[in-house]
Amino acid sequence: MQRQNFDNKAYKEYVHNIMPRTNHLKTLIMAFVVGGIICIIGQIIHDVIRALFPYLERDAVNSYVTLIMIFLGSFLTAIGVYDDIGKFAGAGSIVPITGFANSVTSPAIEYKSEGVIYGIESKMFVVAGPIIVTGIVCSVIVGIIYLIIGG
């Protein structure tokens, strides 16, 4: 079987055609429902804090919601539940902020075996690093642009 008899493009096309398809409907519905539920949990936390501490500023309430959601995502990752949710929820559990917590906590736990400094601390952002870096670069650019146009 020589390579030229069966060129790459034809082979890729052939493989693409017989590849099993993702079940679109199921994955989309799961992502929608799980993502929606996580956001509702966030809203409930928000409203409860609002009701308990009515004098808190709007930004402070949001900060508490973030804190609690990150705690939940991190804790569920640590006890081994979050990856089970992610298996069927897909983007539904990746896109919410709990998914960010998951992507920070999971490598930290995983690389614990290499020690605190070379494992936990240096590997913590192997997955989430790009999010922080991109986010900060973008925000600095936005800040400078607004400074120039006199926002």
Binding site: P20, T77, G80, G86, K87, N102, T105, E110
Partner: peptide, 17 residues
């Protein structure tokens, strides 16, 4: 899994292939 893919506890979906 650690060598080739992601940390074990990361919530990812496995593709059908």
């Amino acid at each position: 899994e650690r060598q080739y893919r992601f940390p074990l506890e990361l919530g990812t979906m496995r593709t059908p292939g």
